[in-house]
Design a protein around this nucleic acid. Sequence first.
DNA 1: CGCATTTGACCCGCGC
DNA 2: GCGCGGGTCAAATGCG
Length: 315
Amino acid sequence: MSDQTRDLYLHDPFRKDGQISGIGDTGFPFYSDNSSMYNHIGSSGHDLHGFDPAYMSFTEHLYGSMDYNTQASPFGLSCTSSEVFFSVDGGQEVGGGVGESVVTGDHTPVAANSSVSSSSTEVGGDEDSGKSKKDREPKVSEDGVESSKKVIKPKKKGEKRQREPRFAFMTKSEVDHLEDGYRWRKYGQKAVKNSPYPRSYYRCTTQKCTVKKHVERSFQDPSVVITTYEGQHNHQSPATLRGNTARLLAPTMLASGLAAPSFPQEMMIQMPPTNTQGHTSSMYQQNLNLPQQLQLPDYGLLQDIVHSFPHNQQP
DNA sequence: CGCATTTGACCCGCGC
DNA sequence: GCGCGGGTCAAATGCG
């Protein structure tokens, strides 16, 4: 292959339809809307500089309006500081798919733009999306003997597997699995190509909740954990039920523009300051992938944040 | 004992 | 069509 850098992107969990999303030097994969307002970021080479302002705005707003004492952090993660890089895969089909990827120096991950073109409009599906493999049934031979191996569930042809909207963000943390107020069960782990660190797959343990997330560590910057959420909780966070109601932003909402938010508001609820496990999580906002017609519900903070970004998405 | 994690195998989509 | 990589399943195992 011509360039090694490209190889780094191969493990991009967001890669879809052959398109590779950009990744910063931490290997963080981002979907980004090519038509988004951050394209300039992607083309500035060492983009930290180019992106910094937006990044600062984002975090500043976060902490400006958030009760920092609660150690609240976006996404309800127990983090103490917050540099957050996150990206959303809203599943919106975006015209023109020229992706740009950026590699930056040092360990500051930087957004890279690429086309999102997330194939299937991910939003369309309800809870069943992404479950195409779910209905596996034990293979039973004609005489009723179950074959040892797993089986294929009947699935309609041409029925493309749909995915829930996803968003990802990076967190500087020593622990892989960040506490976010929900209960998760790990259901798989896979080695990530070109990375010494495995990716872990978690599923919300609440019944009927189909939210999943994967967590992997950046191989470029092992201190950075990349968390990708997929789906929408249909229940309240256990933390919430325990009486914690500090509100946080929903990245989802940022992502949104989506027909339906990927996450309920509960997602923004902060849980108790649980960062006792050594997260130093600073979260890096890497790439905000805002749809053009961003419709912001009444999430004041969110609006602030959004407004802090360059305004070239105005019609 | 019940629940969570580990882990190898399998399925699927995609690129070649 | 084949191979690869991502994602998921489920039996085995571990733990409180």
